[in-house]
């Protein structure tokens, strides 16, 4: 992959409350097909993910949105029977090229999972894990500042500041998920993938996470899979609708939800199925 710097978003800030971003494709998928053995799970998907935007992937259960998400950081490599064809580019470079190192890829594309999965270590150790293995910091104080900053960005610092050495598993569900977000942020990825991050959480925790996504989008490109259309409408700027492994429609969130082009999209939006 090229030696591009980590932050190459073209952002134009108008100094006032409005923020305008010129669309640049951070991730671009072209004719992506995914096979689990014989099963054709993703059929010929072409999609752009823009920088510093939240893109939502919606669709009925089993439509392949999680599968597609996992392609974006090559997590599907861990499954033996999975085969991916087509190209997915990150900043113009195909991540499925043979010389691409998935370890390096995942420092640039992070992931938050559906069920919070903090390590059975202390809160501090959980967040410090990423920077440690990649050797991103050179001293203990640096590591501490990274951990604290990540926890703050994830909105968790105030709640755990006095018990950083308590076990990560001792937190509530919502706190655990924020811990996982902090853990992902700590390696400064450019993209954060979120696979139904709120599905295991209660409404209050969900609201907190949605607030967090809103703040994070300014520094990261976020792709979120969600089964809740209301959530997609709340947090995302672009939405892609998947159905039975195919990308049915993709566009601005407002347009998708108020004026969908495809009949299937309309059926899903209005609750006729899924």
């Amino acid at each position: 992959m090229s030696l591009s710097s980590k932050k190459d978003a073209q952002r134009v800030s108008l100094g006032d409350s409005l923020l305008v971003e010129t669309a640049c494709a951070k991730l671009a998928a072209r004719n992506v097909n995914v096979f689990y053995g014989e099963k054709h799970a993703i059929k010929d998907v072409t999609l752009d993910i823009n920088c510093n935007e939240v893109t939502a992937l919606i669709g009925p259960s089993g439509c392949g949105k999680s599968t597609f998400l996992r392609c974006l950081n090559r997590m599907n490599d861990t499954i033996d029977t999975c085969r991916v064809t087509g190209t997915i580019t990150l900043d113009g470079e195909n991540i499925y090229a043979s010389k691409v190192d998935s370890v390096y890829l995942r420092t640039r594309v992070g992931m938050v999972f559906q069920k919070p999965n903090p390590f059975p270590k202390s809160i501090f150790e959980n967040v410090a894990y990423g920077p440690r293995i990649h050797g991103l910091t050179s001293s203990r104080s640096e590591l501490e500042s990274v951990v604290l900053t990540s926890l703050e960005r994830a909105g968790l610092l105030e709640e755990v500041r006095d018990r950083l050495h308590a076990s990560g598993i001792s937190l509530s569900g919502g706190q655990q998920q924020r811990l996982c977000i902090a853990r992902a942020i700590a390696v400064s990825p450019e993209v954060i993938l979120m696979d139904e991050p709120c599905s295991a959480l209660d409404p209050i925790a969900t609201a907190k996470i949605e607030e967090l996504i809103d703040e994070l989008q300014h520094n990261f490109t976020i792709v979120i899979v969600t089964h809740s259309m209301q959530q997609a409408a709340r947090v995302s700027q672009r939405t892609a609708f998947f159905h039975l492994g195919e990308l049915v429609e993709c566009g601005g969130t407002e347009q998708i939800f108020t004026n969908p082009v495809n009949r299937l999209t309309q059926g899903y939006i209005t609750g006729r199925f899924g």
Partner: peptide, 27 residues
């Protein structure tokens, strides 16, 4: 040891041996 722990570690860019040594074995 649940697969979700391994996935969490791999998702952060750890190699398999690091995941085993730092996450699976301690757990």
């Amino acid at each position: 040891v649940p697969q979700s722990l391994r996935e969490g570690s791999l998702g952060l860019g750890a190699t398999q041996s690091e995941t085993i040594r730092r996450v699976v074995l301690p757990a």
